[in-house]
Amino acid sequence: MASRIRLEDRECPLSTTVQHVGEWWTLLILHDAFDGYTRFDQFQQSLNISTSMLTTRLKTLVADGLLERRPYQSNPVRHEYVLTGRGRSLRPVVVALAAWGNQHLAAEERAMILVDARTGEEADPVVVDARTGRSLDDSEMYVFTAGPAASEAMRARYTELERRRPAPDASVSE
């Protein structure tokens, strides 16, 4: 099967991330794992997914290091699928995707919301810069640029984008 990543995007973290989690079932399986599901039959019942599709997706998640396959029963041998640190680190991404989906629905149309487990108060997830606390949704304030490992093609891309970008507003302070 041909790779879905364009040759010029092989170094792009967005492209490589989508290769790991961009499949429909993958995000739903991860969502169930964040809710505490670990066993094949739990995922299958929750998602109403075929055995073959679930087997394939779980194998991929294990191979990608997002889930770990562990035996929980010896006779017959049965395995559970436990989130790894790498898998757990995707939770904010899934939370942000769900929040984005809910932003486009009326309150009475939302089937799932994020709440504070202690108070029951609805949370309003935002993605912020850890250093400044500012929301990252401002595409004029936060822009992508070439990183230290960028190829010449990637550097050229961002050099061109910087040329087209308006000059920063000097009145904005940190």
Rank of each mutant, 00 (worst) to 15 (best):
A2K: 15
A2C: 08
S3M: 05
E8L: 08
E8K: 08
C12R: 01
C12E: 05
L14F: 09
T16K: 11
T16V: 15
Q19G: 13
Q19C: 09
V21I: 15
W25V: 13
T26L: 02
T26S: 05
L27G: 14
L28M: 06
L30M: 13
L30I: 10
D32T: 13
A33M: 12
F34L: 10
D41C: 05
Q42I: 01
F43E: 02
I49L: 07
I49S: 01
S50W: 09
S52T: 13
L54N: 03
R57A: 03
L58I: 11
K59P: 01
R70K: 15
Q73R: 12
P76E: 02
V77D: 06
V77Q: 13
R78F: 04
E80K: 13
E80H: 05
E80M: 07
G85L: 11
G87A: 08
G87H: 03
S89M: 10
S89F: 03
L90I: 13
R91D: 07
R91S: 10
V93K: 00
V95G: 07
A98D: 01
G101W: 05
L105A: 04
A106M: 05
E109A: 14
M112W: 09
G120S: 08
A123Q: 15
P125I: 03
A130F: 00
A130K: 06
A130W: 00
T132W: 00
S135C: 14
D138Y: 02
E140V: 10
E140L: 08
M141G: 06
E152Y: 01
A153C: 06
R155Y: 00
R157M: 13
E162Q: 06
R164T: 02
R165A: 02
P166H: 00
P168F: 01
